[in-house]
Amino acid sequence: MSAVFAAIVKAFGQLGDRAVTAVLAKSIVITLLLFAMVGAGVYFGLAGAASRYGVAESWAGLATAVLVPIAMWLLFRIVALAVLQFFADGIVVAVEVRHYPALAARARPLPLRREAVVAIRGAMRALGANLLALPVAALLVFTAIGPAAVFLAVNAVLLGRELTDMAWLRHADGADSANPVSRPERVLLGAVIAGMMLVPFVNIIAPVIGAAAGTHLVLRRLDARGGKP
């Protein structure tokens, strides 16, 4: 398990790399633009409904101000991770080149179409699992930490898989090759990153830290095998 925390420390140490900051900046801008578009859509939709039923439009603004932050809290990790997956190669390559140059030479970059498919599938899995967890979280809403614990558990499993697959797919030898990172390590990584995503401002860098740490975990295993998948 110490390998997970070592990978996270190394990931933080690489935040200053130009390639990493470029991916971080693009991911943040696109994620915030998506939520801004959602917010505008919600406002104009509510404003149209308000005028149709003779309700003051100020209520549309108030409802938007309440609903959009809730949506961001619930969906930020899903949207941010889906966006990051389109640029994941930048993070993976930065880690490979700096820490695992021999493995970097053997990697096979994913075509854009494959990246899009992986990102969409990951987002659908995350959205579906979180929606299924929502009723359970609602039952625990009156407890101190019940809902947060439910979403943390669900996303620990999901994120651990997605964050290590970003690197593994560049090195996997065929579709049947198993991810070399053990399930406990993946879950622990996912839990740490999911926890970071619950913290304001820290949640902005959490997906990038997770992608870099997941890359370290994968390549550390491959390096120990002599580069063999």
Rank of each mutant, 00 (worst) to 15 (best):
R98M: 10
L139R: 08
A94P: 04
V4H: 00
M72L: 14
V117N: 13
L169G: 03
V181F: 03
T143V: 06
F151R: 13
A6W: 12
A102R: 15
A56D: 10
A167R: 00
R114Q: 06
R225L: 12
V55R: 10
P207S: 06
N155Y: 06
A175D: 15
L222S: 10
V150G: 04
V9H: 08
V208G: 02
A63Q: 12
G39T: 10
L81V: 15
A123E: 13
V68C: 06
I204K: 01
F35I: 14
F87N: 10
R113Q: 15
R220T: 15
P69G: 06
Q85N: 07
F86R: 06
L62K: 10
V38D: 01
V79Q: 09
G16H: 11
I209V: 15
V154Q: 04
M196D: 01
S182G: 12
G146H: 02
A167D: 00
L33H: 11
E57D: 06
G210H: 06
S177V: 14
L62H: 09
A149C: 02
H171Q: 05
V79D: 05
V181G: 09
I209D: 07
A82S: 02
V68G: 03
P200Y: 08
L75W: 15
Y100G: 00
G54L: 04
I78G: 06
A138Y: 13
K10A: 15
A88S: 12
M124K: 07
V154L: 00
L75P: 08
I28H: 10
V141P: 02
H216Y: 14
G41Y: 11
G13N: 07
